[in-house]
């Protein structure tokens, strides 16, 4: 199995703090790899560093080509989709405009998006800022799905959502993982258990564990030690 995304010795400094201290891991092609860890260990920063949204040092390869020096928009154009923490939809733009903005080269996959989120079709003319949190999350995921990507970076898609919506998002992630490789940051271990094949665990800016998701989740004491949850 080849790695679609290969990260080695990634460092990030924000101000005086050394947030990532040499993070290395591979994301195998296909399926969902979950990036886990307690709050503040650098999961979101890792994704932002991969996207080129923060200054970073180290090596990042996408299907064998190095992307660590590229500008954010070029990284995206090479096939890395991004669903940020807190969704970051454009509140003043309509749902349709949010999607239109995300269109890249090639045929935008509106059928797929509307099949997964039929609600977005009805709300096309509504301003994204007036949507509920769950609906905004749909827009954020839809933006990334509109284009064919080699890998999708998804940051805490279930954060702050009601239980019913969490299940819904998990279902969508399952479906998405059939189409694209996903690197997922997720706190909800139920969701991780359902969708993830592999896990990478971070602690204070370093990788402390890599392995199959089932193995980690089965070992309660390890989960407790690494993630601080039972």
């Amino acid at each position: 199995m080849t790695a679609i995304l290969s990260v080695s010795d990634l460092h990030v400094h924000l101000g005086e703090s050394h947030i990532l201290q040499g993070v290395s891991f591979d994301v195998p092609d296909g399926g969902v790899t979950a990036l886990l860890g307690r709050n503040g260990v650098g999961k979101t920063t890792t994704l932002r560093a991969l996207m080129g949204l923060v200054d970073r040092r180290g090596r990042v390869e996408l299907a064998g080509e190095s992307i660590q020096a590229a500008a954010t928009y070029r990284i995206v154009q090479r096939g890395v989709g991004y669903v940020p923490e807190d969704r970051d939809v454009f509140a003043g733009l309509t749902v349709a405009e949010n999607l239109r903005l995300a269109e890249r080269d090639g045929e935008p996959r509106y059928e797929l998006v509307y099949e997964l989120f039929p609600e977005l079709r009805q709300r096309a003319k509504q301003r994204a800022g007036t949507l509920s949190g769950g609906q905004q999350q749909m827009v954020a995921i839809a933006r990334a799905l509109l284009n064919e990507n080699r890998v999708l970076l998804v940051d805490e898609p279930t954060k702050g959502l009601a239980p019913l919506l969490v299940t819904e998002v998990a279902r969508v992630l399952e479906r998405v993982s059939e189409l694209t490789t996903v690197l997922l940051v997720e706190q909800n271990l139920g969701v991780v258990a359902r969708v993830a094949r592999d896990v990478v665990v971070l602690d204070t800016g370093r990788v402390v564990h890599i392995g199959p998701a089932k193995e980690l989740l089965a070992d309660t004491s390890m989960v407790n030690r690494m993630l601080g949850v039972a």
Binding site: M51, L53, A71, T72, Y73, V76, Q77, Y82, P84, D88, F90, A91, G92, L93, E97, R100, L101, A102, R104, R143, N147
Partner: peptide
């Protein structure tokens, strides 16, 4: 569209490949 979106959140516009 890019300008209106950029006024709101410039980083996110680049994160859509623009």
């Amino acid at each position: 569209l890019i300008i209106r979106a950029g006024v709101e959140n410039r980083a996110m516009v680049t994160a859509l490949g623009i």
